[in-house]
């Protein structure tokens, strides 16, 4: 396992407070030092990523966890914009949603999502998912420098 001393920045795009808290809890149990930024709709997500408006001083995230069912701007639209933006397209985006629909999975990958995960109903499994997410994307995968 590769040890990292840097703080990992994670952006969670999720409108459900319950899910936000659960994810937060899961990352708190994680081994990697991380900071979880939360926005609750698609418009804010893009503003955060582009460091616009009130997110001007925020860091560029190392990983985006994106729900599909969002107010104002849907998750798939956000995904499209990220992947079309040369500045942002290197940031890994993991779709994390309750939907198990084939159409959602296919469309997400067609828009270059880096992974698609259905939220497990069982808490232990959810924690397991977050742990493996962290392990895979933040410890195993090598990403371009400066991304």
């Amino acid at each position: 396992m590769i040890e990292s001393t840097e703080i990992i920045e994670i952006l969670l795009v999720e409108d459900n407070a319950g899910d936000v808290q659960l994810t937060r809890e899961a990352f708190e149990e994680a081994k990697v030092r991380n900071r979880l930024h939360v926005v609750s709709d698609g418009v804010e997500a893009l503003q955060f990523l582009r460091q616009e408006g009130r997110f001007a001083g925020q860091p560029r995230p190392d990983l985006v966890l994106l729900d599909l069912n969002l107010p104002r701007k849907g998750g798939l639209e956000v995904l499209t914009e990220i992947k079309q933006d040369p500045e942002l397209r290197q940031v890994p985006v993991v779709v994390l949603t309750t939907s198990q629909a084939e159409a959602d999975i296919t469309q997400s990958y067609n828009r270059y999502a880096n992974a698609y995960i259905s939220k497990p109903v069982d808490l232990d499994k959810f924690l397991e998912v977050v742990r493996s997410l962290e392990h895979f994307w933040l410890a195993v995968v090598r990403l371009p420098i400066g991304a």
């Binding site: 109903v121 069982d122 808490l123």
Partner: peptide, 11 residues
């Protein structure tokens, strides 16, 4: 909603 109930009771 069930996922919420289930997850938080488990938590």
């Amino acid at each position: 909603p069930l996922r919420m109930v289930s997850s938080y009771t488990q938590l």
